[in-house]
Design a protein around this nucleic acid. Structure first.
Lengths: 204, 204
DNA sequence: AGCCTGTGATTGAATGACCAATCAATGTTG
DNA sequence: CAACATTGATTGGTCATTCAATCACAGGCT
């Protein structure tokens, strides 16, 4: 059933995957510019150029559609490069600075969905898992840096919580405030993350 | 007109200020537990025990009501104590740890409204100004600490962006993820904020 | 004191609009 | 001719906002 489609690559046959993608793309466009509650299934269908009912044919509910959009977007939002350790961290911070400018739409959607997820269990668990994944990626980098310095890797998780949190906070500020200087903030975050002295296994 | 009311403390007479407060309180209760879009004016009126029309008598629109709730809540959310400098910073971080536990409802509302504000100009400017104010308070503390150490106060603004951002990020993580260890995160943030070496300064 | 009256407070029904989800019908294709 | 893809009208509901009508009271007037 599902596998057939990947075996055939002819363009003459119906390609529901294309339709699904069209809907996903249209949903992202509308959702990121208008917000979750201001975007109706009807609008998304219009943007995609399909009938309203077709959206519910591919996605059982609005929440499911939105989660699919989120997954789709996040898959394309990799900010971590190949370098390891401190160099990798610095590269990631540099990359983040440019992503802040180029992916406002995705960040808009992300931040809004966090708000939606607070009161919608379906969206909420999706967001939670996504946050955990991102924080985990930051934690990996933190662990590398600590290992490189041959110090206790214990605080890696806490550091990741703070760094990922600060990243989100900087995203929010740059979305909300036109005058926010995000480069300056990211540089300060990099300095704080890489030069701080953390309490070892014995807490302060 | 307005002064008369404060001169008389009899309970027999009409006290519109009380009614307004009742509506504000009811709105906070519902909004923080159900979210902006899942809360209708009708529900808020019921929670407050007044007629639906009365809500629009005191607040011209749902957005205005929500902003009034936000202002009301923020006015009661002071986490900065009287101490100055590094001691003040540490006290604020400690206080933040307990506020994280006790004011989940207010934080729920705050985070949701950030999302709403992204696509609603009226709410958006309210949120932006609020964020600026809070970041400004953090900046004041940062400036005190830098002054106390007799180093360049230049990075104070950038530090405040990061610290306030991290605070928001930690709030979000603690709201979204049951298993999030917020104390650990706040301690790490305090360590990063107070022990980091910033560009343009020599270490302490 | 007792009546009068205007103004602000309060009510609840009515308005006009919108929406997610369903479904029976139609199109398409292997 | 089945099975999948697509349509768009329908359903059953919700919502913010408006409005005409009622209520409570304060302060002037007799």
């Amino acid at each position: 059933m599902l596998v057939e489609r990947s075996t055939k690559t002819k363009e003459s046959l119906k390609m529901p995957a294309d339709t699904r993608d069209k809907i996903l793309q249209a949903a992202f466009t509308r959702l990121s510019s208008q917000g979750y509650e201001n975007t109706s299934i009807k609008e998304i269908a219009e943007e995609a150029g399909v009938a309203q009912g077709l959206v519910h044919y591919y996605f059982k509910s609005k929440q499911q559609l939105v989660l699919a959009v989120l997954m789709d977007v996040c898959a394309k939002l990799e900010i971590y490069g190949p370098e390891l350790g401190e160099a990798g961290a610095l590269a990631a911070f540099e990359n983040f600075k440019s992503v802040l400018r180029t992916r406002r739409d995705a960040h808009n959607l992300y931040v809004e969905l966090i708000g939606v997820g607070l009161h919608d269990r379906e969206v909420g668990t999706g967001i939670r898992d996504d946050i955990r994944r991102h924080r985990g990626e930051v934690e990996d980098i933190a662990r590398q840096v600590l290992a490189q310095r041959e110090v206790d890797p214990g605080p890696a998780r806490a550091i990741a919580s703070v760094v990922w949190g600060a990243i989100l906070g900087i995203i929010v500020q740059s979305l909300v405030d036109e005058d926010f200087n995000s480069d300056e903030a990211v540089d300060a975050l990099a300095a704080m993350a890489l030069s701080a002295v953390y309490p070892g296994t014995q807490s302060a």
